[in-house]
Each structure stands twice: as structure tokens, then as C-alpha cells.
Nucleic acid binder design. Structure first.
Lengths: 366, 366
DNA sequence: CTGAAAGCGCTTACAG
DNA sequence: CTGAAAGCGCTTACAG
């Protein structure tokens, strides 16, 4: 039910849609400039040389009539939509928000329009070769059959954070997960002498989670710590699942003195669960995450994590997609670097002002 | 510069774009079903009755050929794009993220596609009558001239958080700002006995800020507190500006024991500035915000604020726009209700677990 | 360098 | 209930 302030809902207007006087077409411009429509098309698109004076007349006519080419007509005639499609499982949230920002900016710079469809139903067909020139696909929004179909069609596609199914050479943009995770866990081991380090997984099959888990095992192995299956549970890349799993560990009396959550959302859930159970973070248990999402520096204590350049992933994905559309080439895989962000949830000391805040405000205080 | 892990950038493939075997058209379907293309069009669109057996033959042909109508051809012939456009000044961030989510969901349910353009240049023309059936416009992304042009064209448009310029009857969806602000400031006065309450404005001309400011004055007046111009400064709806203004107040020795920030972002900046200056929140100074954005419950202390149903604003805007497109009617103004969210930054006591967290996790713990 | 004309894939009066 | 045909507004060989 939608509530409407009674006192403001003063009146209800009928706004009848009168068919607007139709916009000028290429024929109108041609007539006004005294040339053929082919010539108008050529000066609009720069597809062939036109005598300067003629071109000037055309431009004047265009300006006078406020002519804008009709996209659908253009698309139908040229088979190009000038539109890029983005398919993702979820549109809001601290993770997708910056990615969307990077994508939108990249698309705009490249002169395309952006069509967005958010779905978890892999079998949808809302975005594809019929209405876009290329697709950006985030894990979880499209199934392998559709990916295969697009590939066989030779339709320009770029994957985000997801390796293509076997045999399909679709470029992928991701982030240095394993490396970052390894450094983070090593920090826990060498700086804070933690040995009972738990891991909170993301969704099954989510590659970011898989690689982060490998980094976790590698760091343990490197320091001679035997990994304990009891210390690995599901965090689901979300607060509530992480909360549940950590609460369960505590209830089961599992001994642990650190938790590496596969992302910052689950790290937040872990902190909440620990606090709820009367454990101190980081004194009793260190907690670290991954991504360095916007709220991470606000957590109590501020979260030690690994910064993933999410916005850049978006921009780079667009760059590769546009390359694929324009000249059919691309890098098969681009991994963007991650970086350790030490704050206090691992056990490190706070500066007078949290380091990231320091950084954040430095520009305004100089 | 884009960094690429050297060891992973194994090879660079040339993916040549071979023109894909063209998709089946309405003519292919007609041939296969032994009917005219007009009949195919009728069964696809349900625009006229077709004998059941014939319709069945057409449907079979469509299924066999995997036929999908070409959107551009449809648009050109029917003058309808089946696409809604969204214009906003900023695409990421805690505020726009849920709004986008609501809009995307609403658009999908209504069977439209969504074209997004983020810009602060009011004079852009990327989205309009040429490529959409209607526009959702957020304050700051489009100037009054363009609004006027769309209105004169009778082009379906809905405004978000912004009253139309004089004389233009464009529907607007917003939130109960004044009411919410008034209750919030009253809470500071009656529960926490604050009288030196400062206000941190948003951008000039931003109506959310203007209404919140009126609520602030009304609450003061109602309790016989004389408003002091020295207690009103610019917060810019962002952390950094708020940080600067609050720091300046402290430097100037302005006496205050509470700050009402016009949104949660600026509230966060205010808290940081106070802590930086050695003031305790809420013991020395209460801080409250507006919106109840995702990070607000994570602030230290958890932020007392007013919840604005941002996602619902998005859904409702789509609902009105679709109504406008379909039958030319709309409500001139829809105000969604806001609600006080008491946490600890005002001075109220914390429960064992913060109230909103309690709420948040209750479903998983029962 | 320029124009006449075909064609892109649909929808929609119009006639029957 | 169904089909033939015009038309939506462009692009792009083709000819000159």
C-alpha cells in the first residue's frame, strides 16, 4: 500500500497524452538543405567526404530544425544498437554500487547507452544480440547455456568475476583474490600470532570465494599450520549467514582466535555475532574481510581487509567489451591488483584518527 | 593504467567477429506457418483475434525457429520503445543504490527495459523521446529548459525528490521531510534537553534539505527556542563538507550541544569531526541524521535518524510513470511516510544489541 | 562528391 | 478472421 499524505494529495489531474507534433526526420533536413538524405546521413555520421559548403548547409539545417537521428531507425538500418547491456544478480549494495558506477562512466565515455537488467534467473533473455551490441555479465545472472549460445553467435561478451565454462574463450575481468587473501592471513599469523584462523566462505561456485579460500590454505601451509575443516563454514557473502555460522561455532565451543570472512559483509556479521556472544574483537578474536567496501571503515572496530578496485573492474570491463565490438580483440583475462588495508579489527593499533579516515580527509584539510 | 598480472596474461587471442547467421524474422515465421506476416504479428502481440488453429501453427513455428521480434523494427513501426529512462546525478552511494534497486524492480515488473544515464550536466540529451517511452528524473541531472521541453512535448515524465518548475504539472515522488525532521528535533529537545541544536544543510536548492530545515525551525519555535543563524552551516549532503563545517564551529568556539545533519552522510562527517576534536558523542554533543542509509547503524555510536523509504520511492515513481504512459493520468504529488529511528547518537541508551540489529537478525534467530 | 533506390523488420489501417 | 501494402526513419551499396 502506498501512503499519500492526505493534505498534499490536493487534486488529481488528468493529463491526456496528445500525440506530439512529430520530430523532424532526415528528409526534413535534406529538403531544407537542398540535398539528398544520403548526403545528410554522410555528414551526420562522417562516413564519406562531403564538399565543405554542402556539409555546412546540412549542419545549419540540422541546427535550425533541432534534428536528432532516430535511434531505432538507425539500428534497424545499420544493425548496430549503440547500446551495451549489463546483467547482474543484484543491483544495490556496497559491492555492486561502485561496480555500476565504473561501468556507467565507462559506457558513457565510450559513447554508448547502458541497458541494465538485474536477475538471478539465468535463463532470462531480456538483454542480448537483439537489443545490445555487447554484454557485460556478472556471475549468477546468466546460465552456461546462454553463455554458450552467445559465444556460438560470436556475440561480444565480457564476464565479471567469473571464468567462462570450458571451451568458451570469453574474456573475464577479476581481481587478485588469492594473493590478497594470502597476505591478509599471513598478517594475522606473523603480526598477531593467530593460529586458529577460521574461514567464512561465500556462495558455492563463486570464484572470488574459491580463490580467497585457496589463499587462506596457502598462507596456513606456508607457516606450517594444519588446516582444520571445523574452522571453515558458510558465510554466504552476507551478514545474516555469517552471523548464524559464527554463532554456531561459539555454541559448539570451537576454539578459534581469528576469522577471515570471504567478504566485508560477512565480516560485519561475524563481528556482530562475536560481540553478541560477549567476545571482544580484536582482543579475543581478530576479524578480517575482503573488498574494502564503503562501510568497512565505519565498523567497530574499523575493519582490516583487502581493497578490491571494484569501480575499476567495471571500467576495465567496458574497455574490453568496446575493444571486442570494435576490432574483435581482447585480453582473455585481466586481473586487477588488490591491496592490504590494515585497520583495527585484526589487532593493530589505532592511530589518532583511523588511517583511512586520515587519508579520506587529508585533501580537505591541507 | 591498468595492471595485468604478468603470469596470468598468458596469451592474447584474436577473436574475429564473423557476422553471425542472421536471426529469423517475422517473414520466416510466416512462411513456415503458411500465413501472412500480419497474422504472425497479431498472434505475437495479441492485437486481433486469430483462429485458434492458425494461432497454434504460428506459435509452433515461432518455437521451432526460436523467433524473437526485433525491438528496433518494432519501435520504428509502432513508435513505442518499451524502454524507460532514468536520469540521475550520481549512480553509486548509499542513497542512490536502494533507489536504483526499487526502480529496476518496478521497471522489470512492468515489462519495460531500463536505460540509465548518470550526469550532472543538465543540458544533456542522451535520454528522451527518441529512445524511451518515459523518463524518471532525479534532481540535479536535468535543467529546467529540458524539463519544459519535455512537458510541452507532453512526454511522460516523473520527478524524484524535486518539485517541477512553476507552471509545469509534472508528477513528483518524494518523502515526508518536514514532519520527520520536526519529530527528530523535538526528540532532541524533549528527551535530551538540547537547546543549542545546529543544522547542517544540503546543497542549495535541494528540496529535501529545504524541507528538513523547515522542520528544524518549526520544532525550535514550537518549544520556544530562538533559532541562531550561527548554528546553521553547509554540510553538502556529504561527509567531507560536514567535517569541515563542524571543525570550523569548534575552532570558532560556537556553543552547541546537538547537531541535526540534513542526511546521514553529513551526520557521519559531523561525528568524525567531533571525535577528532575530542568531543564525546552523544555525551557532549548529540548527532542525528536523515535517511537511515545502510551504514547508519554501523556508525559509532549507531546513528539516530529518520528512515526514508528510498527503495519504495523508486518503485512508486515507476508506477506513476507507467500510469502516465498507459492512460495519461497520475497523482501530482506522492509523499511517502518517514519514521523516526532511535539509536544511540542522540543520547538514548543502547539495548544489549542495537535495536535495528535486533530487528535485522530476528528472522534468522527464531 | 552526390543521389536514387533498396532494404532493415516490424505495425497497422484498409479491404475483403 | 486474414492478407497485401504502405510506411516507420534511417544506412549503404551502386551508378554516375
Amino acid at each position: 500500500m502506498i501512503y499519500v499524505s492526505a493534505f498534499r494529495k490536493r487534486f488529481q489531474v488528468e493529463m491526456t497524452t496528445i500525440p506530439s507534433s512529430s520530430a523532424p526526420t532526415i528528409a526534413d533536413v535534406a529538403r531544407q538543405a537542398g540535398v539528398s538524405i544520403a548526403t545528410v546521413s554522410r555528414v551526420v555520421n562522417g562516413t564519406a567526404a562531403v564538399v565543405p559548403e554542402t556539409a555546412e548547409r546540412v549542419r545549419t539545417a540540422i541546427a535550425e530544425l533541432h534534428y536528432t537521428p532516430h535511434p531505432a531507425a538507425r539500428t534497424l538500418a545499420s544493425r548496430r544498437t549503440h547500446t551495451l547491456g549489463l546483467l547482474l544478480p543484484e543491483i544495490s549494495g556496497a559491492f555492486f554500487s561502485p561496480m555500476l558506477k565504473g561501468i556507467e562512466a565507462g559506457v558513457r565515455e565510450a559513447g554508448y547507452d547502458l541497458l541494465i537488467h538485474s536477475t538471478q534467473d539465468g535463463r532470462h533473455r531480456r538483454l542480448g544480440e537483439h537489443n545490445t551490441d555487447g554484454l557485460l555479465i556478472f556471475i549468477g545472472s546468466t546460465d552456461n547455456d546462454e553463455l554458450r549460445r552467445l559465444y556460438q553467435l560470436n556475440f561480444p561478451t565480457v564476464l565479471l568475476h567469473q571464468t567462462p565454462p570450458d571451451g568458451l574463450q570469453i574474456p573475464v575481468i577479476a581481481v587478485e583474490n588469492k594473493n590478497g587473501a594470502e597476505k591478509l592471513v599471513e598478517h594475522l599469523i606473523t603480526e598477531h600470532h593467530r593460529k586458529r584462523i577460521a574461514f567464512l566462505r561465500g556462495q558455492v561456485g563463486h570464484e572470488d570465494s574459491t580463490w580467497r579460500e585457496r589463499g587462506y590454505y596457502d598462507a596456513l601451509a606456508k607457516h606450517g599450520i594444519i588446516s582444520d575443516p571445523a574452522l571453515v563454514a558458510y558465510g554466504g557473502f552476507n551478514e545474516q549467514e555469517a552471523f548464524k555460522s559464527v554463532t554456531q561455532w561459539i555454541k559448539d565451543g570451537v576454539a578459534l582466535n581469528a576469522i577471515f570472512a570471504a567478504d566485508d559483509e560477512s565480516a560485519s556479521g561475524a563481528i556482530l555475532a562475536l560481540r553478541q556472544a560477549g567476545k571482544r574483537v580484536p582482543q579475543d578474536v581478530s576479524v578480517v574481510g575482503f573488498d574494502d567496501v564503503s562501510f568497512s571503515r565505519f565498523l567497530t572496530p574499523p575493519l582490516t581487509t583487502v581493497r578490491a578496485p571494484i569501480e575499476q573492474v567495471g571500467r576495465e570491463a567496458v574497455r574490453q567489451l568496446v575493444r571486442l565490438i570494435r576490432d574483435g580483440t581482447s585480453d582473455p583475462e585481466v586481473l586487477l591488483p588488490t591491496e592490504l588495508v590494515i585497520r583495527q579489527s585484526c589487532g593493530c593499533q589505532a592511530a589518532a584518527l583511523d588511517q583511512s579516515q586520515e587519508e579520506y580527509f587529508s585533501s580537505t584539510r591541507r
